[in-house]
Design a protein around this nucleic acid. Structure first.
Length: 267
DNA sequence: ATGGTTGAGGTTCAA
């Protein structure tokens, strides 16, 4: 039995519903995790999503900014929303589901972008990002006995040299500064998480999930970053069948600046 | 070194 989970920063789910429908119709993942839905819970396009066969919907919405959603063909239970840094942002939701007799906790994150200046003394948004990822260290892949774990989302950090188009030129750019990349590796080490994308694609290869809207020609310049991630507890590592990064979605009509990333498991 | 684009909700912020 297989299990497929997609993560996608959608940058307004209401505006982007046509490409969400195209994606779900074509690829049919079991579960889709969205970030930056940019709407209140009651504004979510429930009917359109349910009509596509995704009847189980868990939201943590917010007016205008942020917001995360999990839509699923598989029933979802035990949903939680953690208010990181206690600022009232909708940046996390988690659920438990069951597939092939296995219970899995799924976390969906939208980590703060952190602004432009990588110095918390002059940029509070960068400080917030550092505090947020520090708090994420508490999250253990093995927190619940008998329950496997998957963590996905837009983590807004590209941790490895080949997660950015130029390591050297990006070292002082927010998303690839050492304090962020080391902080992310520390979350993984302390929490016992596996980086499933890098299990599938060697660290020597460039790997991107996001391309800026500001480039004249995103595909030609190809100055991407790997900001979106799929992690799991160690027991799921050997069960990973493949990772698919849908680069072509960056070229769709009215695209998000992030593309869908899907992990498929053989359970 | 700089500026470039997008979305939501309003004449500006966050990304």
């Amino acid at each position: 039995m297989t299990l497929s989970i997609t993560t996608w920063n959608i940058n307004s789910v209401r505006l982007r519903m046509p490409i969400v429908a195209d994606f779900l119709n074509r690829y049919q993942p079991d579960i889709l995790c969205l970030q930056e839905i940019k709407c209140l819970d009651e504004q979510f396009p429930f009917e359109a999503v349910r009509a596509l066969g995704y009847e189980h919907i868990i939201l943590h919405g917010q007016k205008g900014y942020h917001g995360v959603a999990i839509v699923s063909k598989i029933p979802l239970s035990e949903d939680h929303r953690h208010d990181y840094c206690k600022v009232g942002d909708a940046r996390h939701v988690s659920v438990i589901f069951e597939q092939a007799g296995r219970r899995i906790r799924l976390h969906n994150f939208y980590v703060p972008a952190g602004g432009d200046e990588p110095d918390r003394t002059i940029n509070p948004k960068f400080g917030h990002k550092l505090d947020f990822i520090r708090e994420m260290r508490e999250l253990r892949a093995g927190a619940e006995p008998g329950v496997s774990a998957v963590l996905v989302g837009d983590l807004n950090i590209a941790p490895l040299e080949n997660d950015v188009w130029s390591h050297k030129q990006m070292l002082k750019i927010v998303s690839h500064t050492p304090i962020e990349t080391e902080g992310m590796l520390e979350i993984m080490r302390e929490g016992g998480w596996l980086d499933l994308m890098r299990q599938d694609v060697d660290a020597s290869e460039k790997l991107y999930t996001w391309w800026s809207y500001r480039a004249k020609d995103w595909a030609a310049a190809d100055r991407g970053r790997r900001l979106d991630h799929i992690w799991s507890s160690p027991d799921l590592g050997p069960l990973l069948a493949r990772i698919d990064i849908l680069r072509e979605a960056r070229g769709w009509e009215k695209p998000s600046d992030h593309v869908p990333v899907t992990a498929t498991f053989n359970l």
